[in-house]
Design a binder for these strands. Sequence first.
RNA 1: AGGACUAUAGCUCAGUUGGUUAGAGCGCUACCUUGACAUGGUAGAGGUCGGCAGUUCGAAUCUGCCUAGUCCUACCA
Length: 956
Amino acid sequence: METTYQPHEIESSWYQTWEEKGYFAPQGGDSSYCIMIPPPNVTGSLHMGHAFQHTIMDALTRYKRMQGNNTLWQVGTDHAGIATQMVVERRLAAESQQTRHDLGRDAFIEKIWEWKEESGGTITNQMRRLGNSVDWANERFTMDSGFYHAVQEVFIRLYDEGLVYRGKRLVNWDPKLHTAISDLEVENKEVQGKMWYLRYPLADGVKTAAGEDHIVVGTTRPETMLGDTGVAVNPDDDRYKDLIGKFIELPLVGRRIPIVGDEHADMEKGSGCVKITPAHDFNDNEVGKRCNLPMINVLTFNADIRDEAQTFNTDGSVNEDISGFIPEKYRGMERFAARREIVADLKAAGLLVKIEENAMTIPYGDRGGVVIEPMLTDQWFADAKTLAKPAIEAVKNGDIQFVPQQYENMYNAWMNNIQDWCISRQLWWGHRIPAFYDNEGKVYVANDKEAARQKYGLDQEVELRQDDDVLDTWFSSALWTFGTLGWPENTQRLQTFHPTDVLVTGFDIIFFWVARMIMMTMHFMKDEDGKPQVPFKTVYVTGLIRDESGDKMSKSKGNVIDPLDMIDGISLPDLMAKRTGNMMQPQLAAKIGKRTEKEFPEGISAHGTDALRFTLAALASTGRDINWDMKRLEGYRNFCNKIWNAARYVLMNTEGEDCGQLSTNGQSGAVELSLADRWIASKLQEVEAEVVKHFDEYRFDMASQTLYDFIWNEYCGWYLELSKPVLWDEAASAEAKRGTRRTLVRVLETLLRLAHPIMPYITEEIWQQIKGLTGKEGDTIMLQPFPEASKDKQDPAAEADIEWLKGMITGVRNIRGEMGISPAKELEVLLQNGSDKDQARLTANHTFLSKLAALSSITWLNPGDEAPMSATQLIGGMKVLVPMAGLINKDAELARLQKELDKLQKEVGRVEGKLSNEKFVSNAPEVVIAKEREKLDAAKSSRDKLQEQHDKIAAL
RNA sequence: AGGACUAUAGCUCAGUUGGUUAGAGCGCUACCUUGACAUGGUAGAGGUCGGCAGUUCGAAUCUGCCUAGUCCUACCA
């Protein structure tokens, strides 16, 4: 083995071996375990958040697989409608200055499929490097042919059940992407805007209660006044209630619009009068419905002013009676230009009362990045309220649990107030809606035209054309847990693995995906009793991975790191190029370059997959965002090196040697276990139990902490050192040597299995090299049983003895450290006041103590003997004395003792205070009081002994 | 406006039903090329647990208020 850990060399081949041998596929077994990957965008690449979630999923998968479950981690990708279409449109523009319209629908979609083939390998390659043990043989895609059927089936059935419908509704319209988007895809941003107060003249000579010939309305979007169809006042508002039923003459347009009474008008706010534009505002739309006001759409799909407005009745039918007149000068104007013009014209007409600064939130499209317009269009909707009912119930009754639980609140709040889901998108890339129209616009929903004719009894002569729209990406990914397993066929995989066990995902897509998956699954998947099946039993919600200062990682901030670059390393120039290349906002490049240079002056060095995974696991405390810290990664890379070198040590001392019974070396000598052997084996049982518990509770941070602490401090720090005296001592028996060799190997082998779910590569590599020494058979650690703690290996006496030994050794080392005695200098040590147990322990551990503390002699003094001047440590009641002559500086020792004394005195004072408190003694449980008494006695006795020592030395 | 979360060592974070001398990694100080490992070893320093009240014999932990920050939802004529 190499003297230092070289991750690249061991990682390159193992994954291929595992995959070729089919270890990732379900291995059979009585109980099944299944995780569905949240499908990443097929043309994207994995970022740190993915690496994080994948580490958790893979750790769970490997853990459950080793425990003997029939385990499936289902892999696949999402077609990601808008995101992917935008990428390809950008590329098309860059390559040939063409738009998708230049190509036409079919050719453009063909282009996207090409791009998918070209770039789809990025993610799979990344996943392989991350060691993800997914079932590649059954990889799925949300637009593969199986999904195509599942999506059609779902849509048609929902339509037939009345849970999907089409209607002319006000939706969030993205004027850049030319599509409707759902409420969730709108990002509200805080901005400083303006509120304009406009004077609307009353028609027919009517006057307000205050005698004025106009009323005042406020608006933040003056251009929408072109579509006003009413003004609302509160029916209880004495200032205006008499005006209800009277009319306004709409400025600039000249339309007569009614004054209506509606609760929506808040008497306290603004003037108390509200202009009503049902085609361009969600609230106004509601008012319009209540007061039977027509809808006038004044915007094009670009959000420019139309040449002539579209006019509709309240129910969405076309209204032929109202004029769609728009003053000529505004026609074709961009919306914000029209706003400026209209304000200027109103001002010129003396109708602008005032302008106020107004802090407000403005809706932006999360993809297109432009201001969203509420737009009146024909769209498809899903009846989310009905679908949500069982989904709410499933979380309420515990069939589905969120980890951490707090996310259930978030889920419930949203689900209880859910709005119908706009599922149609005016895009080309996606599942085209299986709806067909005849020439009268009548709709038929079926798989294809033929099926539609049959289903609805239409003649061949009836011309049908398919709906141009596609479904929201989330509509298909909502079917992920059962669609990937073969639904609508009732496949073996579906029966075996559904419901799945745990979903690992970020809180940011609980609404987008998790909630919808629960709704869809429970509607379509039923068990034998017809009871709705949940898609998964547990939702493990991860936090976001942020950069070291807590900022979200994003391309425009220039703080993203490709997980592969942490694994393989990357030079500064390459990293700079990666971060600043192909940017949406090239002007940021210089700043990002500087930042990168400062952050990584030497680039990033290679750390290996295992170190990255271990770091992510160690940072995975539940429900918390993670601020990424390169130092942590380095630390855990060092941990890998530690394991590597411990394995080297073990191999050097066991390979070709007799490791006792059950070894496959051909020898099988008798074995005697040293105290240290029994101790480490005993401690190992605790670790096994803890790791299992932590995995079962999704506490990967605790699991990694437990492993780190035990491997580094106990196994490497103490046990390997304690093995040396046995292995290297001529006098030690052959039995003892075999016992220690066997323990060295077996504990290491067990630790490798414990750590394997988190660090697959290094554990496999080392396991392969030591398996023969343990008598293990098997081709891979992946399919070895996960360790289980056994009670009969626990040895409390050995644990206590080693604790004592550690105390002795640390005590002497402390004296060395504080007194400045060279570690090379062998010391003579005197012991005094030891109990029988101390004496027995000393006898049993004389060699360990001498070697590890570097002692030349250990001598017992009788209780009354006068000790030479010494530096002193107390181990329980026993004094450990290191004679000072020629070694120790008197002042230093006095200072050291004084420091100890101060500590003890403080402790004595604290505990005495507690125990003299009548209330404490009478109220606290007996155990707690006894513990305090013990503490007090120990502290007092130690203090007195040290005081005595201090006085002696001081008197010199 | 409603809700959730966060605040612990210089930094990044643990601390599971209230009872520890409040922990880890990194960083810091001193010493050490001891035959697994300097990606190492040994010994240290460093915290009035955001603030104020309260409950309790006892609070980092429970309650209330306040401050700072993050996020979600809704609304803003």
